[in-house]
Write a protein that binds this DNA or RNA. Structure first.
Lengths: 338, 338
DNA sequence: ATATTTTCGTTAAGCGATTAACTATTGGTT
DNA sequence: AACCAATAGTTAATCGCTTAACGAAAATAT
C-alpha cells in the first residue's frame, strides 16, 4: 500500500505538504494542491489510520458500549434501533464504531468492567464512548472520563452528558389516553421498581395523571417479571383482585403481549371486553392480535442525539443533556368505553 | 497515560526488555520479568494500540460488515444473534469489533461500497473482516482480500472462506416432518426465487423430499413478499387455488405468522383445521398463537464459526468452509393428521 | 527603495510501540 | 584452558503520519 512518502515523491513535494493538502490546511497553492491530489488518486492512496492516530491522537473511533447480558441486549430490538441512530450520525462524520460489550463483575456496590474493556479505554484507540441503556452504563462512562475519554450515557439520568427518553411524560401520555377513551376502572401490570429507573418514571407519570383525575379507588397494581409469561401471569392475578377492570396498562410491550394471551385464556376479548396498552413499540406490537396501542421511545432519535452530543464534545463544546419526547402510537388494543 | 518508556524507567530496564516481557518472548530472567510486571501494575500501564498497530501491523480489530439496508438489518433479530456469536469468540481472543455498514451503490452488476468503507479497508486499521448475510457481502469480502485483508463471508456459498447454514437440509427437515405428521395436501408460501439464494436452497430441499414421497399432485406454491402482510395475502391466494390443504409451509417465520392471522381471518383454526410451519425461529415464533413449528438456523453457532474461521486465517492456516446444520423446533402449529 | 507582512514550502522532531542486530555474561564441552 | 552455545539484556532503526519551527519568495505598506 502506498504511503504519504510515495505520494510526496510522485507529486515532487515534501510529505508535510501532502499532509497539509489532505487536512485542508491553508497556505498551499492551487497548483501544488492539484499535483498532490493527482498523485493521491493515481496511487489510490488512503492514509494509514494507525499512524495518524499515533501522531495526532485522533483515531476516528468511537466505542459503543452495552454491558454484556446474555439474554437482554441481543434480543432487544430497541438497542438495535438506537445503534442505527448512532451509526448514521457517526459514519456521516467519518467516525468508526467499535462495539464493546464488557462483561461485568459487581464488586461491592459498583459495576466493574473486565480487563478487555479497561485495556480498550486506556489503549488510546478510542476517541469517545457512548454507553447504552443499562445502569452499568454510567460507571463505564465515568471510568472512561476518568481516563480522559469523553463519554455520553444513553438511557438514564445519571451524570453530566446524557441522552434519555422522558419516561415520566410517556407514563402520563399513556394514562391520559386511557382516561380520554372513557376508562375509569384501570389496572397496572408492572415490575419490581427497584430494578429500573425508567420504569419508576413511567409509573410516576401514570400515577400523577390518575391522581389528578379524581378517581376514588386506588390504582390496582400487580408486579411480575419482564417477560410475556410474566404478563400472562400478572393479568390473572390482577383480574382476581379487581374483576371489573375495563383497561390494563402494562409497563412494557412484552408484558402487554403476555397479557393479551392471558386474557384470551380467560375468555376475555380485547379490546371489546377489556383494553390493553403497552410501552416501547417493539416490532411485535404492530403485528400482535389485536395490534397494540403503545408508546414509542423514538430509539433512532435517541441514538442520533447521543452521537451528536458526543461529536460536539469532541469538538470542545460542553453541550447540555438531551431529553427525547416519547410519542403515543394508537392502534387497536385500546378502545373507547361508552 | 504512562508509556513503555515510563515502565522501562521505573523498572530500570530498556524498553525492549519491557516489550519482551509483555509479549512473552523467551530469554528474560524471572527477576527482571517480575520487576517489569511490578512497574506495569504500579503505573497501571496499558499498551497504546495505535503505536502497536503501526509498529507491528497487528491492530486487534476485526471489521464486521453488513450492508446498510435501512429496513432489513436492524430489524433482523437473526443478525443480532450472529453478532452475538461473533462477539463472544472475538473478544475472548482479545480482538475488538468494528461495526461497518457500508452504503451500497450498484454499478453495473456488482455492488460498490462507499468511500468510508474503502478508506477503512485500506487504512491498515483492520486485521480481518467478516461480511454478513447479504449478496453484497461477497463483493465486500473480495474487495478486502484484494487489499490484503483476510475476509470471511457468512451466509452464503460464494467464495473461498465461508460459513453458512445448510438451507437445503433445512428445507428437507421441514417437509419430512410435515409428511411424518401424516399430511399429504401441502401448500407452500414462498418469495420470488431470484432474490435469495438461501430461499432457493430451502425450496430445493422441500421439493426433493416431496418428490420422493410419491404424491401425485404437484406442490401448490404461491409467491409473495417477505413481510407478514405478504404471508397473510398469500394464504388467501393459496387456499383459493387449493382449498383442501391440511398443512402450509411458509418459507420464513414472518410470512408464517402472517399466514396465521390470514387463516384466522378466513375462519380456520391452527393447527386443528390446518397446520402451519415457518423457517428461522425468530423470537416472535415462540410467542405466536399458536406457537410456531419452525427451523432454527443456529445463528449463534454461525457467528462462532465465522469468527473462529477468521482467527484461524489470521494465524496463517487455510481452513475450509463450514456448514452449520439447522435444527427443527417442534411447537404447536404443526399437528398430526389422522 | 526599504521594511513588513503574508504566502508557500521544507526540515526534522516526535507519537509509542516492535524487533533485528548486537554485546555481554554464564555455563557446558572437550 | 579454550571454545561454543545458550541466555539475558541493550541499542537504535522503523512503522506512516502530523506539526512546530524555520526560511524564501511574493505581496503590501511606508
Amino acid at each position: 500500500m502506498p504511503t504519504l512518502q510515495d505520494v510526496a515523491k510522485k507529486a515532487g513535494v515534501s510529505t508535510a505538504t501532502v499532509s497539509k493538502v489532505l487536512s485542508n490546511t491553508p497556505y498551499v497553492s492551487e497548483a501544488t494542491r492539484d499535483k498532490v491530489l493527482d498523485a493521491v488518486s493515481a496511487l489510490e492512496y488512503r492514509p494509514n489510520l494507525a499512524a495518524r492516530a499515533l501522531s495526532s491522537g485522533k483515531t476516528t473511533i468511537v466505542a459503543v458500549v452495552f454491558p454484556y447480558i446474555y439474554d437482554t441486549i441481543f434480543k432487544d430490538p430497541l438497542v438495535m434501533r438506537v445503534l442505527e441512530g448512532v451509526e448514521t450520525v457517526l459514519t456521516a462524520e467519518g467516525y468508526n464504531i467499535l462495539l464493546s460489550m464488557p462483561r461485568i463483575s459487581h464488586i461491592g456496590d459498583d459495576a466493574q468492567a473486565d480487563e478487555h474493556f479497561v485495556r480498550l479505554v486506556q489503549s488510546g484507540y478510542i476517541e469517545g464512548l457512548i454507553a447504552i441503556d443499562n445502569v452499568e452504563a454510567f460507571s463505564f462512562a465515568s471510568f472512561a472520563e476518568k481516563h480522559n475519554v469523553p463519554a455520553v450515557v444513553l438511557g438514564h439520568h445519571m451524570g453530566d452528558y446524557t441522552v434519555y427518553s422522558d419516561n415520566y411524560a410517556g407514563g402520563k401520555l399513556l394514562m391520559e389516553q386511557v382516561l380520554a377513551e372513557g376508562h375509569r376502572q384501570i389496572g397496572i401490570i408492572s415490575v419490581a421498581l427497584e430494578t429500573n429507573l425508567a420504569v419508576q418514571e413511567r409509573m410516576r407519570g401514570i400515577q400523577a395523571v390518575y391522581q389528578s383525575a379524581g378517581i376514588d379507588e386506588p390504582l390496582p397494581i400487580v408486579e411480575s417479571d419482564f417477560s410475556s409469561q410474566g404478563g400472562a401471569k400478572a393479568v390473572t392475578t390482577l383480574l382476581a383482585q379487581a374483576p371489573h377492570l375495563t383497561a390494563i396498562i402494562a409497563i412494557n410491550d412484552r408484558m402487554a403481549i403476555g397479557a393479551l394471551s392471558g386474557l384470551q385464556a380467560l375468555g376475555k376479548r380485547v379490546p371489546d371486553d377489556i383494553s390493553v396498552v403497552g410501552y416501547d413499540n417493539i416490532p411485535l406490537a404492530g403485528v400482535a392480535q389485536p395490534q397494540l396501542t403503545t408508546i414509542d421511545q423514538k430509539p433512532v432519535d435517541l441514538g442520533n442525539a447521543a452521537a451528536t452530543l458526543l461529536l460536539r464534545r469532541l469538538q470542545g463544546e460542553t453541550p447540555t443533556n438531551v431529553v427525547i419526547d416519547p410519542v403515543l402510537i394508537k392502534r387497536e388494543s385500546l378502545s373507547t368505553r361508552r
